[in-house]
Amino acid sequence: MDRAVTLSRTRLDEAQAALAASDPRMGAVIEQVGPCTMLPRREGTHFGHLARNIIYQQLSGTAAATIHGRFTALVVETPTAKGARSASASSPDPRAVLNTSEEALRACGLSTAKVRAVRDLAEHVIDERLPLQAFDRMSDQEIVDALVRVRGIGPWTAQMFLMFRLGRPDVLPVLDLGVRKGAQRIYRTRALPDATRLTKIARNWRPWASVASWYCWRVLDLEDAAGW
């Protein structure tokens, strides 16, 4: 599959049909859950999306939203040219992050570790060690390799970025607990699948592993999920 391919409504329809044809158990889940809605999130910027992911780690939704709102207000990007993208107008700016003191960032509610992480992210973006503008031309693995060099971003966060921000169709988050639990129910495995077992199960999912993973999450939400 072309590495620049991203999920669209047409491709989601194609993915659902292909998964149902190659894997009857997944097909049954697709029929019960309904259409996949995993379209890429285009609002804001890549930097803002990654900073949000760091801030939300290990926090409840309400607390994380409050801290993220304060952080964004403090380091908001200021458009410098007439007609600048409106999506960027309320997005964190990496230079503003580095120009803001650690004390001010901590006052937003960020821990010391998260202050260091968002500043490290900003540094990687500014010096182009993290080439955000080139992501559309890079393979999934190249993007993961670049992201995990940033403090506070591990393989799972990188994979979620590929799936939900970039809309890459064939990402398999083998360590994600929800995907593993969903696969256990769908395929009736006695034990929770480990990375090796899940990779084998996912052979029929290619090249739509992202979509199949989404259905693994959704099967856990079904009222009669225990029947799988």
Rank of each mutant, 00 (worst) to 15 (best):
A18R: 06
M1Y: 13
G227Y: 08
A113S: 12
A21F: 06
D145C: 00
L172S: 09
I54M: 12
A15F: 11
G27Q: 11
S8N: 05
R41Q: 12
L162D: 08
A84F: 05
S90L: 09
L177I: 09
A212Q: 07
L220G: 01
T80Y: 03
A65R: 14
T189V: 02
G178I: 11
R3Y: 11
F135N: 04
A21I: 10
L177M: 09
Q133N: 01
T72W: 01
L175H: 11
P193C: 10
M163I: 15
P40E: 01
V33L: 04
A195Q: 15
R11D: 15
D136S: 08
P207M: 14
L110C: 08
W156I: 14
M26H: 06
A226K: 07
N99P: 01
A212S: 12
V118R: 05
A226D: 15
Y56Q: 03
A84Y: 07
A117L: 02
A20C: 02
A73S: 12
P193E: 10
L192I: 09
M38V: 12
I153L: 12
R180Q: 02
I126T: 13
N99G: 13
V75D: 09
V115G: 02
P207I: 15
L198Q: 00
A81D: 06
S213Y: 05
T196R: 14
L105M: 06
A15L: 09
P94R: 07
A191W: 02
L162Y: 15
A89R: 11
L198V: 06
A107F: 00
V150M: 04
Q141W: 04
G109Y: 06
R11I: 10
H46A: 13
S8P: 01
S88A: 15
A117N: 03
R52L: 12
S101F: 05
P193G: 01
P40R: 13
S213G: 04
P173G: 08
A209I: 03
L39S: 05
G178R: 13
F135V: 14
R197H: 13
R218T: 09
R190S: 01
I30T: 10
V5A: 14
V75Y: 10
R106H: 04
G34K: 03
H49I: 00
V179L: 00
V219E: 06
N204L: 09
T10R: 02
A89K: 01
Y215T: 13
M138W: 01
R197K: 08
V97E: 11
L105Y: 07
A107Y: 03
R137N: 00
K114P: 10
R137Q: 09
A183P: 07
K181S: 11
E223S: 13
Q16L: 09
A158Y: 06
S86R: 12
D194R: 09
S60V: 02
A122K: 08
P207C: 14
V118F: 05
I201E: 07
S91R: 11
L132R: 00
T196I: 12
S213N: 10
T62A: 12
E31L: 15
A191D: 07
D145Y: 03
K200P: 00
R116P: 02
H49C: 00
V211N: 10
L162G: 06
M26S: 10
A226L: 05
W205Q: 08
L166S: 06
L50N: 07
